[in-house]
Each structure stands twice: as C-alpha cells, then as structure tokens.
Simulated assay, not measured.
Amino acid sequence: MTLILLEALGALLLLLFIVWWTMFSGRRKGELPPPPAPESPPAGGAEGEGARKPDSRSN
C-alpha cells in the first residue's frame, strides 16, 4: 500500500514539474513582437474581389 502511495506521489510530482516547465521556461525577454501586417493589395477594378480572370491555357 505504501509503495502505491509513493508511486502516485512521484507521478503527481512529475506532472507538476512538467506543467511548471512548460509554463515558465519561455523566452528570457518575453514573447517576440508580432510580425508587421502585410500591405493590402490595391482595391478596385471591374472584376471585384471574387471574380477570376479566365485562364487562357484552358482553350
């Protein structure tokens, strides 16, 4: 019975160590800054957003 309790305690300590390691072992200076937002393409034209040009290779 004591052996089972010791094994359960060891498993609990291992679980707590894994959780602690994953939470607090990050980068030293914190998270990286977010990447700059991509520039949006120019809007407009008669085609609209959902329209596609016909493929000249399909004919």
Rank of each mutant, 00 (worst) to 15 (best):
M1S: 13
M1Q: 06
T2K: 12
T2L: 13
T2V: 13
L3P: 03
L3G: 09
I4N: 11
L6S: 14
L6M: 10
L6W: 07
L6R: 13
E7M: 12
L9F: 15
L9R: 12
L9I: 12
L9T: 10
L9Q: 11
G10H: 02
G10F: 06
A11H: 05
A11K: 08
L12M: 11
L12N: 04
L13W: 10
L14N: 11
L14E: 09
L14K: 09
L14M: 12
L14Y: 10
L15K: 01
L15N: 03
L15S: 01
L15C: 02
L16K: 03
L16D: 02
L16E: 06
F17A: 14
F17V: 12
I18E: 04
V19G: 07
W20N: 08
W20Q: 07
W21H: 15
W21D: 15
W21F: 11
W21L: 10
M23S: 13
M23V: 10
F24Q: 08
F24W: 15
F24E: 08
F24L: 07
F24G: 04
F24T: 08
S25L: 10
S25R: 15
G26R: 01
R27I: 01
R27A: 09
R27M: 11
R27P: 00
R28M: 07
R28L: 07
R28T: 04
R28F: 11
K29A: 14
K29N: 13
G30I: 01
G30T: 03
G30M: 05
E31D: 15
E31P: 00
P33F: 04
P34Q: 06
P34S: 08
P34C: 01
P35T: 01
P35W: 00
P35C: 02
P36K: 02
A37G: 02
A37R: 12
A37Q: 11
A37C: 06
A37S: 13
P38N: 04
E39I: 00
E39S: 12
E39L: 08
E39Y: 04
S40V: 08
S40T: 10
P41I: 01
P41S: 05
P41K: 04
P41Y: 00
P41T: 02
P42H: 10
P42V: 10
A43S: 11
G44V: 00
G44Y: 03
G45E: 04
G45I: 02
G45A: 03
G45Y: 05
G45V: 00
A46I: 05
A46S: 14
A46M: 06
A46F: 14
E47G: 12
E49Q: 04
E49D: 13
E49P: 00
E49I: 07
G50N: 08
G50F: 13
G50H: 06
G50L: 07
G50W: 08
A51L: 14
A51I: 04
A51D: 07
D55T: 04
D55Y: 02
D55S: 09
D55C: 01
D55K: 08
S56R: 14
R57F: 09
S58F: 08
S58K: 14
S58M: 11
N59D: 15
